[in-house]
Design a protein around this nucleic acid. Structure first.
Length: 596
RNA sequence: GGCCCUGUAGUUCAAUGGAUAGAAUAGGAGUUUCCUAAACUCUAGAUUCAGGUUCGAUUCCUGACAGGGCCA
């Protein structure tokens, strides 16, 4: 921000004037002053002791005195050990506040000219979404919004895994046991219906295995020889040959699943600009293999399989094409990377995929680099950890999966219950109340999943995690609702929110100054979040802002203030907090209510 | 066996190499003639271990230990 730059400049000049040191202003780092000391910015003198030939405290004192004298922004200073704390003139804060008030694009970067593709969600069409998918979806959506705020042109893509043996399993079970059941006839949401048959398949398959083992067959062999799995494999072959009956069933069942996914996506508030289907892309990539062979960067083994040697990158040799000419996952991904780049010539391609695929993406990037693809450099794997339950890892086969739709519904029920207990729905129409419960439920859930560093495995405890107090989404939402009440009242009183209404105001409370500092900092936070692909940075910011405001709200009265300018300023300050709470939360995909 | 990720209060999470390691929750004590107490204030409590680099290490490096993942 400008203020920091100005101070860095002054420090640079001071170092030159006092000690004859030439230090570029951009190399001078300022940090926010810790709460227990007076001041807003802190300059650390230790790194300059040798060059200056003075002790840290001496340097601090000399710099502080010089800055107080020469830098208009600096009101006062104090030196603790080697830390120079600088206090800023109050009118500087008020001026900065007025500037951001009248700047509608504070926090929205100008067009960067860069294209960024974000692939996320990417579900299988054989079962409904679960808690892990929610982390993925929220991350993908939020990172997309953060990239937009950083001025990039963003395309959100979803690569649907709609083919393969897992779908055939559901289809086969449906053929055998479905009796023509449909989402309409059963009242079961399409994706859940497909999931039901996937589970049925697995159960029957297991029984067959047990039977074979009981007859004396080795377990591994039984897994391969069970009639059901053989049938499923036959079905996959038929699908690949375009068998009419199989393809028709596949289309029908996938159609149900898409309707189900659509409903879930709408409910959780995520969307996509483009869908890719693996059924359309799974044959791609073989041309890339051919290209690599011609360029001599891939090699063929005697059995005809194609490999790439990545040992120079610290990776292994990797299979790219089987000896029978069929492709593997990495082959397909090479193809889709090219396809995506043709569709949308990205500078950066972000893949939001779980961390079990870390190695896979290292390989993908390395292989594309070997092929000399310029877009390889822009590939970034946004890797995230599993969501664990208190009982351990989620396992679909053991029925310990937290279903996304059910979880959202539970959150909504909890929101309703809590709101009713607190007696907060007075004056709400039923529609407004329903909307509020949804907003709160999604706020709690999204915030909970996004406030944590994506890399980390996280624990989801259904009892403890659904909290509406403390460092949570609803806490931030509550702050917005409180401010909205203030703004409504100000409106009724005919007080307009504008900078002119407090033109002579200058006397800031500490709590007010803290809030302004946070507001002024918002664009940097957005930048930081973009650089790190980290919604958690935004979540922390929103929390800090809400917390700082609540302190102000508690300590300082607005409408009892007799000084009109001070009152107007506080209303304006409140309005700006509401604005940036709203903006930062929207980067997380979270809505904020007017009342709650 | 090789490679990758993660180890911080009882618990769930923070901390561009900087000060006395922050929050939340659970525990203890308070705040309502006043704009929404889903709030605020106070209190107690933690860096897995051993080396190294540095004026300074939760952070960087090496090695253990623990948890998780990937590749055969």
């Amino acid at each position: 921000m400008q203020l920091q730059n100005a101070i860095s400049q002054s420090i640079s000049q001071a170092l030159e004037a006092l000690f004859g040191l030439t230090v570029d202003a951009s190399a001078i780092s300022l940090q926010p002053t810790r709460k227990e000391f007076a001041g807003s910015f802190t300059f650390v003198t230790f790194p300059y002791t040798k060059q200056a030939g003075k002790g840290p405290e001496q340097i601090g004192e000399a710099l502080g005195a010089y800055l107080k004298e020469h830098a208009a922004e600096v009101k006062n200073y104090n030196v603790v050990k080697g830390f120079l704390n600088l206090e800023i003139e109050e009118e500087v804060w008020v001026r900065l506040f007025r500037e951001l008030m009248t700047n509608p694009s504070h926090g929205q970067a100008t067009d960067s000219g860069k294209k960024v593709m974000v692939e996320y969600s990417s579900p299988n069409t054989n079962k409904p979404l679960h808690l892990g998918h929610l982390r993925n979806n929220f991350l993908g959506y939020s990172v997309s919004e953060i990239m937009k705020a950083n001025g990039h042109d963003v395309m959100k893509a979803n690569l649907v895994n709609d083919r393969g043996i897992h779908i055939c399993k559901s289809m086969l079970a449906y053929q055998k046991m479905g009796n023509g059941e449909t989402p309409e006839s059963s009242g079961i949401k399409g994706d859940h219906l497909a999931g039901k048959y996937y589970v049925l398949f697995d159960k029957a398959y297991k029984e067959q295995i047990d039977e074979l083992v009981a007859q004396g067959m080795d377990k591994e062999e039984a897994k391969k020889k069970a009639p059901l799995i053989l049938e499923a494999q036959t079905m996959l072959q038929k699908w690949e040959q375009g068998d009419e009956e199989v393809v028709s069933l596949w289309k029908t069942m996938n159609g149900w699943v898409y309707e189900g996914f659509d409903a879930t996506y709408r409910n959780i508030g995520v969307d996509f600009d483009k869908f890719y289907y693996e059924s359309e892309t799974y044959t791609l990539g073989k041309e890339r293999v051919e290209e690599g062979l011609q360029k001599g960067v891939f090699f063929k083994k005697p059995d005809g399989s194609v490999w790439v040697d990545l040992t120079d990158e610290g990776l292994d040799e990797k299979l790219l094409l089987r000896s029978d000419g069929t492709s593997v996952y990495i082959t397909q991904d090479m193809g889709t990377a090219e396809l995506k780049h043709n569709d949308f010539p990205y500078d950066q391609s972000i893949y939001v995929v779980a961390d079990e695929q870390n190695y896979h993406f290292q390989v993908l990037k390395a292989v594309l680099k070997k092929l000399g693809k310029p877009y390889a450099e822009g590939i970034y794997h946004l890797s995230y950890g599993m969501v664990d339950l208190p009982s351990g890892k989620m396992k679909s086969r053991e029925g310990t999966v937290v279903d996304a739709d059910e979880l959202v519904q539970e959150m909504i029920d909890t929101a309703r219950q809590q709101t009713e207990e607190l007696g907060k729905i007075e004056g709400f129409t039923p529609e407004e109340a329903t909307k509020l419960y949804h907003t709160l439920a999604m706020g709690a859930l999204k915030y909970f999943l996004l406030k944590v560093d994506p890399k980390k495995r996280m624990l989801f405890n259904p009892q403890e995690s659904i909290d509406f107090r403390g460092n949570t989404g609803p806490f931030v939402q509550y702050t917005h609702a409180r401010i909205s009440a203030i703004l409504r009242k100000a409106g009724e009183m005919g007080i307009a929110v504008d900078a002119a209404s407090f033109s002579d105001f200058n006397n800031l409370h500490e709590a007010e100054q803290e809030v302004i500092t946070l507001l002024v900092n918002y664009p940097e936070v957005v930048q930081e979040a973009g650089k790190l692909y980290a919604p958690s940075v935004i979540a922390n910011y929103a929390y800090e802002l809400a917390k700082a405001y609540n302190r102000f709200y508690q300590e300082i009265s607005i409408f009892n203030e007799t000084d009109e300018q001070a009152r107007n300023f506080r209303i304006a300050l409140s309005a700006m907090v509401a604005r940036f709470v709203r903006e930062s939360m929207s980067l997380l995909g979270i809505e904020v209510p007017e009342r709650m």
